[in-house]
């Protein structure tokens, strides 16, 4: 099992880098060319969500991305360290002003909606110590030469 790991400060400008790296590793792993756009978008959504969670919770730790090449599949794990509350709960640190909180929640949900619409094999877990989005795609093994 080969893995590429990426850790980046929770800043919007690094999300593009994560997309580019993920797409490059996915291509190398044998993910179908036609699916690479989906990989790029899904990993971007997951990283955007993690960056937002870190920023709104004031977490200085980096966002973690693992790109895992397995025998017949390629998986991406995007991990954050934000303590997750039960959906629907108002987070205790939420700023009072205007409608900023609701907008953030909506965007967060839209990101997840895009991921679940794009990726068939996706798992979202969250706990007090952070969340993890794991997404997998099938890979085609390199064509064997017929003598």
């Amino acid at each position: 099992m080969a893995t590429v790991e990426l850790r980046f400060s929770a800043l919007p400008e690094h999300v593009r880098t994560a997309r580019l790296v993920a797409a490059a590793v996915a291509r190398r792993a044998g993910v179908d060319e036609a699916v690479l756009d989906e990989v790029r978008l899904a990993v971007g959504e997951a990283c955007t969500r993690a960056v937002g969670l870190h920023q709104s919770a004031g977490i200085s730790a980096p966002v973690r991305v693992s790109l895992i090449e397995e025998e017949k599949q390629f998986s991406i794990e995007v991990g954050d360290e934000a303590p997750h509350t039960v959906p629907g709960d108002k987070s205790p640190g939420a700023q009072g002003g205007a409608d900023g909180v609701d907008v953030e929640t909506e965007e967060d949900e839209m990101g997840l909606a895009v991921i679940s619409g794009l990726v068939d094999d996706v798992e979202v877990t969250a706990g007090e110590n952070g969340g993890l989005i794991r997404m997998s795609w099938p890979t085609t093994p390199p064509a064997t030469l017929v003598s």
């Binding site: 790029r40 978008l41 909506e106 839209m110 895009v114």
Partner: peptide
């Protein structure tokens, strides 16, 4: 070339 949910928002 690329659009994500932030752009949709």
């Amino acid at each position: 070339d690329f659009l994500d949910s932030t752009g949709l928002g």
